[in-house]
Amino acid sequence: MESSTSFPILLSLRVAGLALLFVGPIGLAIALLQARRRYALRGLVDALVLLPLVLPPSVVGYVLVVVFGRRGLLGRILEEGLGVRLVFSPAGAALASAVVALPILVKTAQPSIEAVPSQLEDVARTLGLKPWEVVFRVTLPLAWRGVLAALVLGFARAIGEFGATLMLAGNIPGRTNTMPVEIFAAFQEGDDARAGLYVGVLSAISVVVVLVAGLLGPKEGRAPA
């Protein structure tokens, strides 16, 4: 039992890292799309991105189980095609964390991308750069503070995910018991010391994240308008 004290901490870091690896590029792509393009379904995409923020975690978890569960459409394809089972697995915990991290990631990165004057991107195009080259050589270098803040906040949201994680990945000691899940279990068992330990660790991580995000937040260092 003692040796497994550190397991939820390491698992949470791994799950949040995996979630960020997955949702980071997707979130940034959506933020770029929403910041720079005016297209027919833009409002709908905006609403869909915000959904995990507005819906109760139990609803997000339920939807994920329906879609990615063993009888869900994508769940079956993943299990039969790739041998990946998300239910009751750390990968499932990472997926749930990724989904709930998406809104904060997109909504933090988008304004910093919008703050890059599009005239700079236009000039870069006339100098021979393809649109994806413009992203890497103009947009991201100028929006890096906001993008980094988005990734940091997304990581914090991912590591703190509880409800959807519990429904999709469950609470299997030594396999899917991330810190938030472990806190709930310890609380129910009346093990205040164990709950307190993880509460402390999660709180410390959150304080660091909020401080870092504050340092990166809106500030001079942006491109002049």
């Binding site: 195009r125 006339t126 021979g128 750069l129």
Partner: peptide, 14 residues
């Protein structure tokens, strides 16, 4: 635009 080889100097220089 990237294939036109037309140089562009906007009003605020950008």
């Amino acid at each position: 635009p990237e294939a036109r080889r037309i140089g562009y100097v906007p009003q605020d220089q950008a």
